[in-house]
């Protein structure tokens, strides 16, 4: 039987009727057409589908849409519009930390979540934070550089503000 669910997606209230088997990722992509959330494995191994669910990064392929009923979801589209990841987007662009772009959503989510809890991560901590994000194109180093540069910018900005 289909279920009615209500959730907040990128600040907008959304009401949908879904089959219980529909994943949050499929809800976002197919129903809401928020196609910035990608599917690479549908079993939590590649990280392409990461979204923020009530403020923490989760795999949208491992969460059922019905489980997200009543919760707040932020996707790449929402983070982009909010400006919260502007610095990461800039350092990724500067450093060419993406090629085909299919992993980029997940990389940005992991980076955003990492920097929210660790303002000065080492390269090894960054690599650890990305340990569930698969990228076939870049070899990862540029992504590590970009996240490191964004962290530096934030630290310098915080110092300047003091």
């Amino acid at each position: 039987m289909k279920a009615d669910i209500t959730l907040t997606v990128n600040g907008e209230a959304v009401r949908e009727t879904v089959e219980p088997r529909t994943s949050l990722a499929d809800l976002l992509r197919d129903n809401l057409r928020l196609t910035g959330t990608h599917l690479g494995c549908e079993m939590g191994a590649c990280g392409a589908c990461l979204v923020m669910l009530d403020g923490v990064a989760v795999h949208a392929c491992l969460v059922l849409a019905v489980q997200a009923d009543g919760q707040k979801v932020e996707t790449i589209e929402g983070l982009n519009d909010s400006g919260l990841i502007k610095d990461l987007q800039e350092t990724f662009h500067d450093r060419n930390a993406l090629q085909c772009g299919f992993c980029t959503n997940g990389m940005l989510m992991s980076a955003y979540a990492l920097l929210a809890g660790n303002s000065d991560p080492s390269r090894d901590e960054i690599r650890d934070a990305l340990s569930g994000n698969y990228c076939r194109c870049t070899g990862y180093e540029a992504i590590v550089d970009a996240i490191s540069a964004a962290a530096d910018h934030r630290l310098n900005k915080a110092k300047g503000a003091q």
Binding site: T35, H38, N80, Q89, D94, N96, L98, F102
Partner: peptide
């Protein structure tokens, strides 16, 4: 030079066949 088309991906605006309906 940086890639202009990277900006779309960074904004979640890639256009993959997977996305097409």
């Amino acid at each position: 030079h940086r890639r202009e088309n990277a900006l779309r991906h960074l904004a979640g605006r890639g256009r993959f066949v997977t996305d097409l309906a």
